[in-house]
């Protein structure tokens, strides 16, 4: 699919309850050269088969039901969590601290800028040193 063809095996999962934000983030991730799959709730992701294949998780913090941080904690509790980028429309220092303490790699404020998101995703993937997954080199 992607011209440089290196990231077909790199699956980025996007979880956001807001449809327009979800579609926008998914498309940006694809434009940056990754494969993206979108979910409208944490519960949907946890039920899905993509759960085991994801390279990186990008989730909204404020969601009804299970929020982004809850999702990360749930994934940590059931094994090694994927590299995770949480994003939020509200500046909330307490939430940011809790997220960083819990081990979330990046905590971004919306709107997402392409360069920033790309850097975060790359860095999140590289820092995890997972032998099976080499960082993509999209351009």
């Amino acid at each position: 699919m992607e011209a440089l063809g290196m990231s077909d095996d790199l699956l980025i999962v996007i979880v956001d309850d807001d449809q327009s934000a979800r579609e926008a983030t998914g498309d940006l991730v694809r434009a940056l050269g990754f494969q993206a799959v979108e979910f409208c709730s944490a519960a949907d992701l946890l039920k899905s088969e993509e759960r085991g294949r994801m390279t990186c998780l990008i989730a909204d913090v404020q969601m009804p039901g299970m929020n982004g941080l809850d999702l990360y904690l749930q994934l940590s509790a059931s094994g090694t969590p994927p590299p995770t980028v949480l994003m939020t429309a509200y500046r909330d220092e307490a939430m940011r601290e809790r997220a960083v303490e819990a081990g979330v790699d990046f905590y971004l404020e919306k709107p997402l800028e392409a360069d920033q998101l790309l850097a975060c995703v790359r860095s999140a993937i590289e820092h995890r040193d997972e032998p099976a997954r080499q960082g993509p080199r999209p351009h």
Partner: peptide, 28 residues
Amino acid sequence: ISQPLASMVTNANAGLRWLDKEIPRIVE
């Protein structure tokens, strides 16, 4: 209001990236 505004920025960013490719991806 900030929700759709944030999405607009993200979408515009995606659009720029699609156009910035060696072969611009017009449809995307």
